[in-house]
Design a binder for these strands. Structure first.
Length: 312
DNA sequence: CAAGCGTGGGG
DNA sequence: TCCCCAAGCTT
């Protein structure tokens, strides 16, 4: 394999979208690195199946691996097939979701299980368009399930891959806030031609971003493509552009919703309003949060001011 | 398309 | 303590 020459000093402000490394110069080292360093995660084992992959993808949307692991195991033990979950009340999915956060994902996973049972004979579809049509499945998750569960050739653009590509190919520290057409184009250009290789590349490039090319404290010393990384070769310039979008939480409705739902998750019987009132002392915000939960279908109001997780 | 949506761990 | 971050989706 030819050693990649550091591109001769490129004039500044030359975007040159074609000045990226030869794809194979990235594939080979990243795939070899993945063979040695990939984590042994349960949803990567063959016995996980497409349903296991899909469950893991829902849980991993914005939630770290270490927190997902125990919930994932319990979830699959209890609902080993989509039809098993579909037969349950949606509230049971919300309860089992525990403290993973963003509980609407639990509702959507339940909805997806129902749709799979009704429309696809209980089997997670392998067709990309059918995956995309399921609740809670967007651009990333559809590609991830098609790729990881069925070995198909799709560009998988999650936050890790986007960061790896931004650095290695584009030469910037962080990708834009929202996925751009340019990123999709780049991902397609870098996708290996062979289907099976493309699927491994997706997992490998993601793993590289998760373990080595992290958002902070990246470890270029352990990076298999450090010598080809445009960002590192240009001296790792700091992110300029607009500030990266942060998330607010303290004192927001989200925090109140979390507290309200925590009470309902623990409750075996319907909870009286007064018990919910105890979690937040500001009545206007408290009411707004509860209304929001009801509107989202995460909470079911009953007569006499009682509330519970949704039975239907 | 920017905003809203949980939670907890680490620097 | 505070701030940032973690395999996004929906409206």
């Amino acid at each position: 394999m030819t050693s990649t020459d550091a591109p001769a000093p490129v004039p500044q402000s030359a975007p040159a979208p074609d000045g990226l490394p030869e794809p194979a110069a990235l594939h080979t080292p990243v795939l070899a690195w993945f063979d040695r360093h990939a984590r042994d995660l349960p949803w990567r084992r063959p016995e996980a199946g497409a349903w296991g992959v899909m469950v893991s993808e829902f849980m991993l949307q914005q939630t770290p691996v270490v927190r997902v692991l125990p919930v994932y195991e319990q979830w699959l033990a209890r609902w080993p097939r989509p039809a098993d979950l579909a037969a349950e009340a949606p509230g049971e999915a919300v309860r089992a979701w525990g403290r993973l956060g963003y509980p609407r994902r639990a509702l959507r996973l339940h909805g997806a299980a129902v749709a799979i049972t009704e429309r696809h004979g209980g089997d997670v579809p392998s067709d990309h368009a059918q995956l995309l049509a399921l609740p809670g499945i967007g651009e990333y998750t559809a590609a991830a399930v098609a790729s990881f569960a069925y070995g198909q050739r799709y560009p998988v653009l999650d936050t890790n891959v986007r960061r790896v590509f931004a650095r290695a190919a584009t030469g910037i520290q962080y990708p834009p806030n929202a996925t751009t057409a340019a990123e999709r184009r780049l991902a397609r250009a870098l996708l290996p031609d062979d289907e099976g290789t493309a699927a491994r590349w997706a997992a490998a490039s993601m793993e590289l971003g998760a373990l080595v090319c992290t958002a902070k404290n990246e470890d270029c010393g352990r990076c298999p493509i450090a010598d080809a990384c445009a960002w590192r070769l240009s001296g790792k310039p700091a992110h300029d552009g607009p500030p990266r979008r942060g998330q607010t939480y303290a004192g927001t409705d989200r925090q109140v919703r979390g507290k309200l739902l925590a009470v309902l998750r623990e409750a075996v019987v319907p909870v009286p309003q007064a018990e919910l009132d105890a979690v937040w002392n500001e009545p206007v915000q408290r009411a707004r949060a509860l209304d929001g939960l009801v509107a989202d279908g995460l909470v079911e109001p009953l007569p006499d001011g009682l509330y519970r997780l949704p039975l239907t």
